[in-house]
């Protein structure tokens, strides 16, 4: 069944979009990531203009984060205060990111920026995850009973503007969370991702938050950052396609449930290795496209 997308102005098979949403949903259910980093390149691949793909992904992320955060609220694993601090940074970051996006769009370099961001971030994160999960598997095989976890106090935590984050059990400066928020907000606006895959490691390793509140808090703030990004893209670029978002959503929520079931049957370390491999595969594909001479040197449009 073909559907004509009113904003993207292309006709796409509705089942292809449902399937894409579904696949990404399965992965996000399995690995606990938003999946924005996968859906945006996949949309490029089916012929959605990059600007529409980026803006519409942001809209879709709002829906999947709302769905996810509700479950975390019930389990009381959201640090609202930390969420708001991150959010303050996130909104500033989104606004800056949209400015950068529009500037580069006018210069014709938006594809390059998006692709470079993907290659760099997917590369770093995929690589770190792969190493970490291989180590975890080796440890598990070696001797049971890991080392006791110690709360690390980094120099960044001693900056001024100290705040108490009760749910996270932290008393640290508000500057690092704001900085993390700005970074993730910028990336979200440029890459069309929620930034969960950067936010989660940053919260654990940089802010020292306990793992159990990390995902809920990250989802909570992503709703607003992605929402703000959607609004700005809709307002300044007119590139949010609600038809497209809707189809991806339906596939996404069904896929997420299936993915959660699959995820429960697999070992956590194995899951992380597969996610790392997937992230690296996307990264390599995009990287090669930049390095290999293109078949056609010219391109039309924005």
């Amino acid at each position: 069944m073909q559907i004509f997308l009113p904003i993207a102005e292309v006709s796409v098979n509705a089942f292809t979009l449902l399937g894409l949403g579904g696949i990404v949903g399965v992965l996000s259910g399995m690995f606990g990531v938003g999946g924005g980093f996968l859906i945006t390149p996949l949309l490029f691949f089916v012929g959605i203009p990059p600007a529409v793909a980026v803006a519409t992904s942001a809209n879709q992320i709002v829906a999947s984060s709302v769905s996810g955060v509700l479950a975390h609220f019930k389990r009381k694993t959201v640090d609202l205060k930390m969420g708001f601090v991150l959010l303050g940074g996130g909104l500033v970051g989104s606004a800056i990111g949209i400015q950068i996006f529009n500037m580069l769009k006018a210069m014709g370099q938006v594809d390059l920026l998006v692709t470079l961001c993907y290659v760099v971030f997917l590369g770093i994160i995929g690589f770190l995850m792969l190493i970490e999960s291989i180590r975890a598997i080796k440890r598990a095989k070696g001797r049971p009973g890991g080392r006791p976890e110690r709360k690390k106090h980094l120099w960044v935590h001693n900056l001024p503007l100290k705040m108490k984050f009760r749910a996270s059990g932290l008393y640290i400066s508000a500057i690092p969370p704001i900085a993390v928020g700005v970074m993730v907000g910028m990336l979200g606006a440029v890459m069309g991702v929620g930034g969960g895959f950067i936010m989660v490691p940053a919260m654990i390793y940089l802010l020292g938050m306990p793992t159990k509140v990390v995902i809920g808090t990250s989802l909570f703030q992503i709703i607003f950052t992605a929402g703000f990004t959607t609004l700005l893209h809709a307002y300044t670029n007119h590139t949010v396609d609600v038809f497209l978002a809707f189809l991806l959503l339906i596939g996404g929520v069904i896929g997420a449930q299936i993915g959660t079931q699959i995820g429960l049957k697999m070992k956590a370390e194995q899951l992380r290795i597969w996610l790392a491999v997937l992230v690296l595969a996307v990264c390599l594909k995009l990287g090669f496209d930049l390095l290999l001479p293109p078949k056609e040197l010219y391109s039309l449009g924005a």
Partner: peptide
């Protein structure tokens, strides 16, 4: 709507996303 009432369109897109996320959960 997307071109002439961009803000309303954006809010609508968000409302759909929010409702759908809540509905799904």
């Amino acid at each position: 709507l997307a071109y002439q009432q961009a803000l309303i369109y954006g809010v609508m897109a968000l409302a759909i996303a929010g409702l759908f996320g809540w509905g799904a959960s």
